[in-house]
Design a protein around this nucleic acid. Structure first.
Lengths: 341, 341
DNA sequence: AGTTAAATCCAAAGCGGTTTGGATGCCGGG
DNA sequence: CCCGGCATCCAAACCGCTTTGGATTTAACT
């Protein structure tokens, strides 16, 4: 069933039928109703390829993710995608995801632009020396960044949470509880978010005249064993930390496991604060959540980033605009006063 | 830069240029080279919408996932997607993901078919009373199932792992170690995979004349707290289990946490066997993995399911065909002889 | 040399929509 | 009664590619 057949059945021209269905004013209310009814009855829906070709808009947003196991192929990414996807479908956009070899990333973006596969893209996981925004500007592909690109904060549109502040507040909470020896289990520090988190931690420490001990600061992919192994090693050392500041629930669970294996009690002997992205399969809710955390829904960030991008596509010569989300600081069971205080 | 401009520059017809680029034989090697060079130089790539319209194939595979928080929006899904995505990009296909409200799922599939958004789809998470395969057959949309549809195993193409056998073997391992009181922390049992796992557990038990105690069998979304809370409750009961059979690493981590909090030792006082989907952010590897597990890479399953689907699209009147994967049984640190034996 | 087959290349017709630039009919006002 | 203007509707061009059915040139064979 295509436009032609439908308009034949209605004894109307394709033009009129098309206009009727797309809400143009040049068609009487009566005809519009007739058309809508017949379309419904015959189950007509316009072929997207044809429409896209005619309008020149692909009505799709691209997400290219490098195949590498690092960082991106993680549940946080999924949750973001889920949020963005909700926004897309609400606005009639498709989401297309390209999993590419790491060294084909640039190529993937170029393909999207030249083959007109998508009307815009979202940049995931900006790193320290980021170049994707320049490429995208060069090939004239609208984009929004999830996170911030160091040095390009004012010239790009982004959605990010206040990583520095979140970790600063978390650190202050620990300091207020009397902890002085605080370990940092950070994400990969070539990623922008991890740098900011570290900054927040260091700022809070030095504001109280403390010097962060790099001996108990780590940076890696945020897996469960990463949390467990490093916590274990530190706890068994001569001068163990009394608190852990962790970048992800997943690793925090590992830290908790290590604490348990050392015969210690989380929240009493050792404290943990983690960042909580509010992942659906790792709920940290309830009256008093298991983990004290800084929480910010990455799914919500996905929704907002998508909205921003769609706005930009609709009005191309609009100012860049960004959204800075604040994380909540939530007191759970995993923190307590420093021992011996 | 489009075909017309390119062919003008080359003083050739669009036909010839198109054929040269698409590897048709009716063009001399010399011309082909010239065309390729010029296309490269001018950065030409065919507009996908136009090509799709002309060929009638959308060169995309759809994945529709309900917005609901249950099951689907989980890391296992992501890992599957990642695997499938690799296959797609290798074959020049796009992956389009639709996040839809639960009650719009059918509608989403129909849209894909009538608007020609994708050439095929993958069915995720088949449940007990599954109807999607009938719908897809009705609207004539090729598909492959990840998992199996009860009652339709022979008439549909699917990729699944041998859930029943995996859990049977896992249970036997525990029984061989002398465990008699074994708890089952299963996934949602309206899902097919969870039913099969339960079957495997029950089969193994009754083969040794044991009757599974439904008092220590649970079924839910596989979160971390699910594992911890239920394990905690059981361990504190009058007649605690000596071993746990768990459906997911995530919940198994929760179980381990509960064991630790009870002052017991995993692999000594209490054993755990979990299914391990080989998620990248939950590595369970090393010489002796932390968890004894049945392991089957869901990423691999994604690759294979995608290959199967692309095959079906290429040769529509081909037999249905399926792939039954076997899980490895891997001995880790989380199992040991039943206490007092 | 004449004929045929093979090798190249091309004009034009789709694919299924949207959109431009009229055409037609009906109305009230002068 | 005639004309301008509004409300409707339509024919045809166009989006950028693939593909059919020929046309033309070249090579090969009798």
């Amino acid at each position: 069933m295509n436009l032609k057949e439908l308009s034949n059945r209605l004894k109307l021209s394709q033009t009129t039928v098309s206009r009727a269905l797309n809400g143009y004013p040049e068609v009487s209310a009566d005809t519009r109703r007739r058309v809508a009814e017949m379309a419904e009855k015959l189950g007509y829906a316009p072929n997207s390829q044809a429409r896209r070709l005619a309008t020149g808009r692909s009505m799709a947003i691209g997400h290219v993710i490098p195949r590498s196991i690092h960082e991106m192929m993680n549940p946080i990414f999924l949750e973001f995608i889920a949020g963005a996807g909700e926004t897309y479908s609400k606005h009639g956009y498709d989401m297309i995801i390209s999993v590419v070899e790491d060294d084909h990333e640039e190529d993937a973006y170029r393909q999207i632009a030249t083959r007109k596969k998508a009307d815009g893209v979202i940049i995931h996981g900006p790193a320290a020396n980021e170049g994707r925004h320049r490429l995208l500007r060069e090939i004239n592909l609208p984009f929004v960044v999830h996170g911030r690109i160091p040095g390009a904060e004012t010239e790009t549109s982004w959605v990010d949470m206040n990583n520095r502040r979140a970790f600063e507040r978390a650190t202050n909470l620990l300091l207020d509880l009397g902890h002085k020896r605080i370990a940092l289990l950070n994400g990969l520090e070539h990623m922008d978010f991890a740098r900011r988190r570290r900054k927040g931690f260091e700022d809070a420490m030095s504001a109280r005249g403390l010097v962060p001990d790099t001996g108990i600061m780590r940076s890696s992919d945020m897996t469960e064993p990463y949390g467990c192994d490093n916590a274990m090693e530190m706890l068994k050392s001569d001068n163990p930390p009394t608190a852990f500041l962790v970048s992800s629930m997943i690793s925090a669970i590992g830290v908790a496991r290590a604490i348990g294996q050392c015969g210690l009690e989380t929240g009493k002997d050792v404290s943990i604060i983690t960042h909580d992205d509010a992942l659906s399969f790792l709920p940290n809710s309830g009256e008093v959540p298991i983990f004290t955390c800084t929480r910010s829904s990455v799914r919500y960030a996905g929704q907002k980033a998508a909205e921003l991008l769609l706005d930009h596509i609709a009005e191309p010569d609009r100012q860049v605009s960004s959204l800075h989300l604040d994380a909540e600081l939530i007191i759970g069971q995993s923190t307590g006063p420093a021992p011996g205080r």
